[in-house]
Simulated assay, not measured.
Amino acid sequence: MANQRAHTVTGRLTALVCITVLLATSARLSAALPAETDPAWTLRKEAGAIRVYTINQPDSDFKAFKAEAVMDVPLENLMAVMVNPQSCVEWVHNCSESYAFGDGHFHDRFAYSVNDMPWPVADRDYVLHIRTRGDRTSGEIIMDLNATPNRRDPVEGHVRVDRSDTLYRFVAQGDQTRMVWIQHTDPNGAIPGWLVNTLLVDIPVRSMEQLERVARTERYQDHRLIWNQDGELVGVEGNP
């Protein structure tokens, strides 16, 4: 009987430790980026419908940015772009290479990409863990992209980014889509301050402008979002 009680206590303690670890891990993940509504965001640029804000990040010399806009394209078009592993080169400013790898699926996958940096700065490469979730009732889809640098070997001539966290939030508004893009990246190595400040503003503006153009092209038309019986997004279906 005493042994049974001991096993029960041990089991409960093990479960409690597991729950604590899971909660701590979730807290770290959610704390990686500042809240969208943080009052410390500072408006840096307005370009048409796009607004870009920056904010200081703890333990980093580099600011995070938030870009937001209402795009004149349906959510289905944008998601058709986002699930294409090669689409980074189509819309993300300075993205010169991108592809998926591993045995991932729609909700949980991995991608490798390269950012072409101006000479003499070395190009940066990213190994990203991408997670996607969506809710049919709210019309909201969220993508989290986090650097996982050790999942692929280093590439000669590139500097591997080991700290990068990105959140994309898409909300359907009829035939339009509201997009919020929050990102913090520590690019590693020496980069001139003027270049960092330029990238913080120029990358989201140029990229979101290009994303809207790309999402209107023929290859990203006639797609639809696939939801399960619980109203959770499970995929995007359309042109190959």
Rank of each mutant, 00 (worst) to 15 (best):
V159C: 01
V155G: 03
T185P: 00
V17Q: 04
D59P: 00
Q4V: 12
N115W: 06
A47E: 13
S207M: 10
L200W: 04
N77D: 09
E90S: 13
W119F: 14
G235N: 02
L29R: 07
S98G: 10
Y220K: 03
L200F: 02
P120N: 11
C18H: 07
K66H: 13
A147D: 10
A172M: 03
T8G: 12
S96P: 09
M208Y: 05
E140K: 13
V73C: 11
H105L: 03
G157F: 10
R124H: 04
H7W: 14
V180R: 02
S98Q: 02
G11L: 14
D165G: 02
V201M: 01
I55A: 10
Q4C: 13
Y99N: 09
R216N: 06
E156P: 00
D108F: 02
S138R: 04
E68P: 06
R28D: 03
L211C: 03
R5T: 08
G11N: 09
R151I: 07
R160D: 07
G174V: 06
D103R: 14
F65D: 08
I141V: 15
I142F: 01
R151V: 12
D175H: 12
D202M: 09
N197C: 00
S207A: 02
L145E: 09
V83L: 05
D123A: 11
M71P: 04
M79Q: 07
A64R: 13
P204A: 08
R28S: 08
V81C: 08
V70R: 15
G11E: 09
S138C: 08
D144C: 01
I130F: 05
Q210D: 02
T148M: 15
S26H: 06
L33Y: 07
L199W: 00
V114I: 15
T37P: 00
F110G: 00
K45C: 11
F106C: 08
